[in-house]
């Protein structure tokens, strides 16, 4: 997918360049500016994630999320998912490993859902674009939604 994205971006850039040099340059300038604009926050987030994942190892997570842990485990899973930021390509194998080592489907569903939709660490960035109210409402709604996903998973799987 990343390669596809590069191909698309490069093709678009080429077409743009033949249509108007000035506009293409302006687009690149804008691209750089919006990147540099958010770079300090990106870098801070990366360090926080690094430290958090160094402390919270997969073994510790799997201890907390056993299938007998019930709704208490679901809650812990949802909280862990909300505060951590793990890329999807790491999260799914991790979730599969957790299931194998005894975690329940409900807990894993809650973990995956909040992991992707709720972002405590990234809240300052979100607030800078959407303001406090929208950010809080979106994250709380997504947090609540994760419990519904967990419930449905618990019933169906």
């Amino acid at each position: 997918m990343t390669i596809a994205l590069y191909v698309i971006a490069f093709s678009a850039l080429t077409v743009s360049f033949f249509k108007s040099r000035e506009k293409t340059l302006l687009a690149l300038k804008k691209a750089w500016k919006s990147f540099e604009n958010i770079l300090p926050q990106f870098l801070s987030i990366l360090i926080i994630i690094g430290m958090m994942l160094a402390i919270l190892t997969p073994e510790q997570i799997s201890k907390l999320l056993g299938s007998e842990s019930g709704w208490y485990g679901v809650l812990i899973a949802a909280v862990i998912g909300s505060i951590t930021l793990i890329p999807g390509f790491v999260a799914f194998p991790l979730a599969a490993a957790l299931l194998k080592s005894g975690a329940g489907y409900m807990q894993i569903a809650a973990f995956i859902s909040t992991l992707m939709m709720v972002g405590i660490v990234t809240m300052p960035v979100e607030i800078s674009y959407f303001g406090k109210k929208a950010t809080i409402v979106r994250n709380v709604a997504a947090f609540g939604f994760s419990f519904i996903v967990a419930l449905v998973m618990g019933v169906l799987l």
Partner: peptide, 27 residues
């Protein structure tokens, strides 16, 4: 180490996104 590998992942995926963003903004 974790920060480093995440940084690499971020730097590999962000350039095309921001280029498309700039083009979108201009065109």
């Amino acid at each position: 180490q974790l920060t480093g590998s995440n940084l690499l992942e971020m730097l590999s995926v962000l350039p095309p996104i921001f280029i498309l963003l700039g083009l979108l903004d201009v065109w």
